[in-house]
Design a protein around this nucleic acid. Structure first.
Lengths: 135, 135
DNA sequence: AACATCGTGAGAATCGTTCTCATGTCGTCC
DNA sequence: GGACGACATGAGAACGATTCTCACGATGTT
């Protein structure tokens, strides 16, 4: 019975720092950089190291609880998100974000990939524009 | 006769360095980082400063003569490209690239944007996978 | 040939991100 | 409840890509 062990390590501990990052993420609905999130936490009186913010965001992203994408400068930006696969329509001016789904696009990308013999496919698709309020 | 002056400043001079970068770009058809391009030029006996490679690539990208996108680590990578709007299917392992077009995707993105009242739309779409040779 | 202008190179400076490692915290097993 | 081992954290160093600085070189023009 040594081979059946579904949960060998819980691994993720609920620490004060992780709660602070999760709370910060819950407090906005647009994409923010790690440093902005770090500042936000500090301004709320909590103290969490920048390295810890990065580590926590990476963990959350792995778990699929936040989306990470890169702005046009290559900086990583994060946002809490729904757990289904989706893309974003982001306002270039104010950052307002709409989650969008496109089954057709998903089908198209895998068809294209298959057609060229590529496997193990992933894709990035983000739409940038100016939202109604900023026009 | 003074008001019609289509080329006030030639601005871009054909220098040895710019020719070297253009030649290097012509020598491969996958995406490469600026540093790889710089190494490539050096290995061919030419000597061009890294800063100049960056400057030249930025200029070419502005002119629409090369595509610049970012890999999953956020690094900028470049490639000479056709001048029509298109996307890429890139091998995660060897960088082999296929230019793909997707009228349906173009239509879908602008429809989505319009539907949410967003204007002045642009989008990024890249597909990453493993090419037949690397599987 | 002389000039004004733009381009270049070497290295310093930036800036986002990750790593190091000593110390703190959590959960657990006596 | 106390001791322990594993994981987590923080401060700052380290890193790596990119940009900036500025003195010098090349270009095209008069």
């Amino acid at each position: 019975m040594t081979s059946t062990d579904p949960t060998p390590r819980p691994a993720v501990r609920p620490t004060r720092q992780r709660r602070a990052v999760a709370a910060a993420l819950a407090g906005f609905d647009d994409f923010r950089s790690a440093q902005e999130i770090h500042d936000l936490i500090s301004r709320q009186g909590e103290s969490v190291g920048l390295a810890t913010v990065y580590r926590t965001l990476a963990t959350l992203a792995d778990a699929g609880e936040v989306d990470m994408l890169r702005n046009e400068d290559g900086e990583a930006i994060w946002r809490s998100c729904s757990d289904t696969h989706h893309h974003h329509l982001v306002c270039r001016t104010c950052g307002a974000t709409v989650e969008v789904e496109g089954p057709a696009v998903e089908r198209w990308t895998s068809a294209i990939a298959t057609e060229h013999g590529y496997g193990d496919i992933s894709h990035t698709l983000e739409i940038f524009g100016t939202c109604p309020a900023c026009r």
